[in-house]
Simulated assay, not measured.
Amino acid sequence: MNKNKTDKIIITLTTWSGIALLLGLIGWGATYFFNGYRYEQTNDAQVDAYLSPINAKVGGYVSSIYYKDNQQVKKGDTLVLIELDEYGLKKDAAAAELMSAHAKLPILAVNEETQLKSIGVIKAQLTGAKARLDQQQKEFDRYKNLLADESTTQQKFDKVSASLSITQSDYEQTKASLQVAESKLNDFSAQRNAIQAEIKLKETLLQRQELDIRYTVITAPFDGQIGKKTIQEGQLIQAGQTLAFLVNKAEEKWVLANFKETQISKFSIGQAVSIEVDAFPNEKFNGVIESLSPTTGARYSLLPPDNATGNFVKIIQRIPVRIRFTDKSNKVAKLSAGMNANVYVLKD
Rank of each mutant, 00 (worst) to 15 (best):
L146G: 04
L146S: 05
G76C: 08
G36Y: 00
S100T: 10
Q209D: 15
S163V: 02
Y87N: 15
T295L: 02
T12M: 08
S163E: 09
N2F: 08
K314T: 11
S161N: 14
N330R: 11
S151Y: 02
F222K: 07
Q209R: 08
V345M: 01
S17D: 09
W254G: 01
I289C: 10
E97H: 08
K260M: 04
Q46M: 13
D44L: 04
S183A: 12
K314F: 06
V217H: 05
A194I: 09
I166H: 09
V110T: 03
Y344H: 01
A333N: 15
E283F: 01
N70S: 11
T6F: 12
E276S: 08
A124I: 13
S268W: 05
Y67S: 03
Q135E: 12
P304R: 07
A272G: 00
A30K: 10
K228P: 07
A176G: 06
L126K: 04
K159F: 01
F285K: 01
K117V: 10
G234E: 12
N307A: 11
D278F: 05
L206F: 00
W16R: 08
F325K: 14
I65M: 01
D212E: 14
K159C: 01
V273Y: 00
D7S: 07
Y87V: 11
R214I: 09
Q271P: 03
S161G: 04
L84G: 07
Q125G: 04
I195T: 15
S265L: 06
D85L: 10
G88D: 14
T296N: 10
I213Q: 05
L211N: 09
L256P: 04
F267V: 07
A129H: 13
A93E: 12
T14M: 14
A95W: 03
E97C: 02
S100Y: 13
A190S: 13
Q207D: 01
L13R: 11
S274F: 07
K138Q: 05
T15R: 06
L126Q: 00
S63C: 00
Q241W: 07
E150K: 14
